[in-house]
């Protein structure tokens, strides 16, 4: 039931900006280097994040990225959805009509997927970038 590597890299990139980009713009090369991914791949990720309004960009040689919203308003769930579209382990959780089975109105198993989805969203939709930034800094002994 794997989350895409892309969405995990996106969260890492966003956390990087939250921690190191509070008062300055962070450029793509810097983030790519820290995340140990190719700059092109990183640009794809940040393009999706920008489209969702989660980051803003300033162009030019001194340009870069900044968070598009306050870090306490950005949840893990928002970031994953910006990259992957949705966070459900089975499509029918979001939309029963997406199920092509003849017996979908009497489905024996959908409830299980709904329960699992709730467990995932309970974490992902509550955890903010601010929570993670604060924890990260606390772990490294910086206040």
């Amino acid at each position: 039931m794997k989350l895409s590597t892309k969405s995990r890299n996106a969260l890492e990139g966003m956390l990087y900006i939250a921690v190191y980009g509070e008062n300055r713009l962070v450029n793509t090369r810097e983030i790519a280097a820290k995340l140990k991914i190719s700059p092109t791949y990183m640009e794809q990720i940040f393009y999706s994040l920008k489209k969702s309004g989660l980051v803003t960009t300033v162009r030019g040689s001194k340009g870069g990225f900044a968070l598009g919203l306050d870090d306490e308003k950005i949840t893990v769930g928002m970031i994953i959805r910006a990259i992957d579209g949705s966070m459900v382990p089975v499509k029918c959780v979001k939309n029963i009509a997406s199920c092509k089975s003849q017996v979908r109105s009497n489905c024996l198993s959908r409830n299980v997927w709904v329960k699992i989805t709730h467990a995932i969203l309970e974490v992902a939709d509550k955890l903010t970038l601010k929570d993670l930034k604060d924890k990260y800094l606390a772990e490294r002994g910086v206040s």
Partner: peptide, 12 residues
């Protein structure tokens, strides 16, 4: 990466 490892422990 360091951030990746932090996220593994605190999110995933």
């Amino acid at each position: 990466t360091e951030l990746g490892d932090f996220l593994n422990r605190n999110v995933w």
